[in-house]
Design a protein around this nucleic acid. Structure first.
Lengths: 203, 203
DNA sequence: CGGCGTTCTGGACGATTGTCAAGATTTTTC
DNA sequence: GAAAAATCTTGACAATCGTCCAGAACGCCG
């Protein structure tokens, strides 16, 4: 029956997503290098052979996982963009959201930075990393341009630079958040720096 | 004799430095995770047992290596700082030096970013990473404050933020330089962005 | 020269890795 | 309901890893 029959491709992908969701927990905990396929499988409801049934090798799994996670990531700030009525409101909401995701999803973010660093050594990771990086760049660009628009001004730095800047301070905050024994201070610094820097990017 | 007799501690450290110098080549080529102690030893004039004679374990070796390399790194821009007579000259020289080090030492830089990412997972790396990060921060700060001074203005962003910004765009440039098939474009973008952004950091 | 501490070698160890394959189990199809 | 295809389990594989160690080679001093 066409109604009950599930497209095998979809079913296959549903399983891959379930696997990815489990794997992301272990990957976020151990990082790319130290997370073995066995450890990933053990910390999940699946057997280690099943991982290989759905993914050709470790790289394919990891790339799929990060792609899967970042998929939900790139719309994170679209809510605050469309909800904010003024430039200041947008800025505060944006900064708050940045801090929120550091607190809630620090393991995922460090995994992303890990993978991006690995892509500088591992050729086969580059395509996925480049693609994700581009979507993150336009995500940031939507925030910055909307901020400028609400303030009746124009952005004075190129899209590429805007992302580089905010990614830099975000990464710094993540590092400090995970490393220091005063995580709150890292968040405060990030909040304050975003409020200082974003206005600099518009005329 | 006190004059001819070499301090054993010094001799020991001379050897460690020689080992580090060799190891850095392999580490820069393969990255932290994929560079095994055997591979490091093979690509050097030393045996793999000797690595363990001078370093307790892999982590100690890697930390020593990156510390050793960054030691020579943190004074990279001091020359342009003291030589430049005007703000514009400093800016150009700084941007040029950034591009130069990407071309000449890309493997070392990606190793640093690799190690910094690993420190978000591996507790025992954090102290060294944090310390290096601080010295890089003040290195950048010397450049930015001198630039402001030469222009008769003051820096309007905190030291921490200035480093975050420039590290962000530098990392982006390194990624693009290593990843794209048009490395020159990445350098051009970096140059242009530095010339756009640094002026934004001063009043 | 002989003894001794330092330096260095190269093999061996157990553990872990990614990968694979043969068979059990389940689901689908006719 | 049987045949066929898919899904999944389990155990095994060769390779590689970090680490350790027994002993060779070295330099130094009495």
């Amino acid at each position: 029956m066409a109604t009950t029959r599930v497209n095998p491709v979809d079913k296959h992908d549903v399983r891959r997503r379930a696997l990815a969701e489990s794997a992301l927990r272990t990957l976020g905990e151990l990082g790319y290098a130290k997370a073995s396929l066995r450890e990933i499988a053990t910390n999940s409801e699946f057997s280690h052979g099943m991982v290989h049934y759905y993914f050709a090798d470790k790289l394919e799994l990891i790339v799929y996982c990060v792609r899967y996670y970042k998929e939900t990531c790139v719309t994170r700030y679209d809510g605050v963009v469309s909800a904010s009525q003024s430039a200041d409101e947008l800025l505060d909401a944006f900064a708050a959201k940045l801090c929120e995701t550091i607190v809630d999803e620090a393991p995922m973010h460090r995994l992303w930075y890990d993978l991006r660093a690995q892509s500088m050594f591992e050729e086969s990771l580059r395509e996925a990393v480049t693609q994700i990086d581009r979507t993150l760049e336009s995500m940031i660009w939507r925030v910055v341009t909307r901020y400028a628009e609400l303030g009746g001004r124009a952005v004075t730095v190129p899209q590429h630079a805007a992302y580089g800047i905010l990614d830099g301070v975000f990464q710094q905050a993540l590092l400090a958040y995970l490393g220091s024994d005063a995580p709150e201070a890292a968040l405060d610094a990030l909040r304050s720096e975003v409020r200082t820097l974003v206005p600099l990017l518009v005329g």
